[in-house]
Amino acid sequence: MFKKIIAKSMSKSPWIYHVNTGSCNGCDIELVAVITPRYDAERFGFKLAGTPRHADIVVVSGPITSQSKDRLARTLEQVPEPKVVVSIGSCPQSGNVFKGSYSVEGPLEKYTHVDVAIAGCTPKPEAIIEGLYKAAQILQEKREAMEK
């Protein structure tokens, strides 16, 4: 019974840790907009956590710059299992306008498995909420898979 409750709770209370890897702040602002009264992602139990140790979902925005590469790797490592990685915006996927720059070492797939990628420059808050909601479902699946 507990297993079921836990697995169900996984999707109902995903805590987010946000990593900025050289983003232009556009996506960051939209992510913050998601938890404002207008969009209110807390309806689904989303909460911004202060440390990767508490996080379930790691949200990455920005192309991966060479400076932030190691930091990102360390932060991702410190998140406890089960965890889900979500990328916001086009930058982590393709590099967007920063592609080809000497200091950009994207895309994110090179370093970690990305579970949900939210495209757009910048994605709308509605899109972000949907992406995060899907991430929460993936979290539950991962937890169920862990038990087996």
Partner: peptide, 19 residues
Amino acid sequence: RKGPPVLQPFYDFFKLMGK
């Protein structure tokens, strides 16, 4: 805001137990 369900702390608690 609409806010989380009243049972949200229970979800948080059980989720953390499963991490």
